[in-house]
């Protein structure tokens, strides 16, 4: 007999959360919960393993295959672990005209990883993504669930350095209609614990 590696179910000790998520949808629409459940797992484990797909399928009444079909349709769920800080650089036209290609190249050089890779420590991973809705404030790096916009070279350096120390800077509210002050690296170095405040 094959020894099956068993992983404790993710939601086993999260009944309240599960109830809350399932409660958002009518009973006949239980399947709707598949996306929020995938997000919970993705957020906590940085990827969605096959065991989790099956577990979620059990919860919402889908085959694991169907859950995989859904999961793989979206670009925010990952089948392989991403880094603690998943850096998503928008590369679509407006951002590209604001320098996102160069920003991306800069990150590649700085971190030594390319699109789709995770660094050796598992700290950073890099993904080129499509339009993030920051067209007026590009270039933008989405770190996990948080946007850092109008990323200048100095801001980029400061951000990466902070993250390297596991300090997550408060994003600068850089929505200025012009680029004044863009390179001041003027965001508060107000750090919060990694990942805090970015559930669901």
């Amino acid at each position: 007999m094959v020894e099956l590696e068993t992983v404790p179910p993710f939601f086993a000790d999260k009944q309240e959360l599960l109830d809350e998520i399932l409660g958002r949808y009518p009973e006949y629409g239980r399947r709707s919960a598949v996306m929020p459940l995938l997000r919970e797992v993705q957020h906590a484990e940085r990827y969605v393993s096959e065991a989790r797909l099956a577990e979620i399928g059990e919860i919402v009444g889908m085959h694991a295959t169907e859950v995989k079909g859904v999961m793989s349709f979206y670009s925010e769920y990952h089948g392989e672990p991403v880094g603690t800080y998943h850096l998503q650089v928008c590369s679509t036209l407006s951002c590209s005209l604001a320098g996102s290609d160069e920003l991306y190249d800069y990150l590649v050089e700085k971190l030594g990883i390319v699109n789709g890779e995770v660094d050796a420590e598992g700290r950073f991973s890099l993904q080129k993504v499509e339009c993030l809705g920051s067209c007026g404030s590009g270039p933008v790096i989405q770190v996990n669930d948080t946007y850092y916009e109008r990323v200048s070279r100095s801001r980029c350096d400061a951000l990466i350095e902070a993250l390297s120390r596991d300090e997550v800077p408060e994003p600068w509210r850089a929505r200025g209609g012009d680029n004044e002050g863009a390179d001041k690296a003027d965001f508060l170095m107000h750090t919060v614990a990694a990942g805090e405040g970015e559930t669901r």
């Binding site: 007026g136 509210r173 929505r175 200025g176 004044e180 003027d186």
Partner: peptide, 12 residues
């Protein structure tokens, strides 16, 4: 006035 904290609709 545009500054780092004004929204993207800075000028009307």
């Amino acid at each position: 006035v545009a500054d780092a904290t004004t929204p993207i609709t800075s000028r009307h």
